[in-house]
């Protein structure tokens, strides 16, 4: 046990080192690769502080999907990247450095002298778990206690997607997102692009299924599904859907609409907005989580795919 602090210290230094690299790397692509490593290392950090739910999310979104989003941008912007980076003046950098150091020191002081005993809602959260027929308190917070946050956050995702779509040219509106996929001539790549998705889909569904009692959930499962879909689209194995397609829109909104319908149904069956009836909370929670996983997967996939840049026919 005495060795654990050493492990944690090494991990913390490694995370800071990689963050530093991401900040100072000369080429954007190199910085992005550093960032992918950063996201994965944060997954280790979260495992170290026993937040498995967050670790799953961070590894999937931070290292995985965000990483790929930035990789693509770096690859596309590379041809015109200015060779020597235009740097602001030394005085400016020193001043900013001092400011940031003050922020860090302020936070460090707060970390070093925390409120004692630490406030916690863990007991309150645990109290209602049996009534909700859930074992995972994080799921309970997301889907019950703070359901409004989760619902509004689904709308945030939708707005982000509308924002991404809005950046396409008028003439392609309603068409296929992104440019034409890569022509894959590499058999190893095809193999990988065919191999990973089935594994990922099983894993994603497992994460959703296990989330009632174990770490996991709609976010984690949805992200893994999204990653697999993105891979299949990138390798040209699956054509992206036309953004004007009614079926796609319905799929995209299915989780949000179900959530809202269940929310308003609460007025009738459980005495209030987003209340769950005592008789069958788990059934309703699953009813929300399944389409929500799909919504998250589809939205994340489309967010990475970008605005419509091709017509439906192409």
């Amino acid at each position: 046990m005495t060795l654990l602090p050493l492990y944690y210290g090494l991990l913390a230094l490694l995370v800071i080192g990689v963050a530093w690299w991401t900040l100072v790397a000369r080429e954007t692509m190199a910085a992005v690769i550093g960032f992918i490593a950063y996201g994965m290392l944060l997954g280790l950090v979260w495992a170290g502080i026993a937040s498995v739910d967050v670790a799953l999310t961070e590894a999937a979104i931070g290292g995985g999907v965000t990483g790929v989003l930035l990789l693509r941008a770096a690859a596309r912007l590379r041809p015109t990247e200015p060779a020597p980076h235009e740097k602001p003046g030394l005085v400016f950098r020193v001043l900013v450095g001092i400011f940031c150091a003050i922020v860090t020191i302020g936070l460090a002081v707060v970390v070093l002298f925390p409120t004692d005993p630490a406030p916690s809602l863990a007991i309150a959260a645990a109290e209602h778990l049996p009534a909700l027929e859930l074992g995972n308190p994080v799921t309970a917070v997301l889907i019950a206690y703070r359901a409004l946050d989760t619902m509004l956050e689904k709308v945030v995702l939708l707005l982000a997607l509308i924002g991404v779509w809005s950046l396409g040219p008028d003439r392609n509106w309603g068409g296929l997102p992104g440019r034409a996929p890569a022509v894959v001539t590499d058999s190893a790549l095809t193999f990988l692009a065919k191999l990973l998705p089935p594994i990922g889909i099983v894993f994603g569904v497992y994460l959703l299924w296990t989330s009632a009692d174990n770490p996991g959930g709609a976010f984690q499962g949805g992200t893994v599904l999204a990653a697999m879909w993105i891979l299949a689209m990138m390798a040209g194995l699956r054509a992206p859907p036309a953004i004007g397609s009614r079926a796609l829109r319905l799929l995209l909104l299915s989780g949000t609409i179900t959530f809202i319908v269940v929310g308003f149904a609460g007025f009738l069956i459980a005495g209030g907005f987003l209340s769950y009836p005592a008789a069958f909370p788990k059934a309703l929670i699953l009813l929300i989580e399944i389409p929500m996983t799909l919504t998250i997967a589809v939205t994340l996939g489309l967010l990475v795919s970008g605005p419509a840049e091709r017509d439906k026919t192409s």
Partner: peptide, 19 residues
């Protein structure tokens, strides 16, 4: 899973030829 995904995406984006 996601390390493999990121690597594949990297190869596709950085070196993939497009239609």
């Amino acid at each position: 899973l996601l390390a493999a995904f990121a690597s594949a995406a990297f190869v596709l984006e950085a070196f993939g030829t497009r239609g």
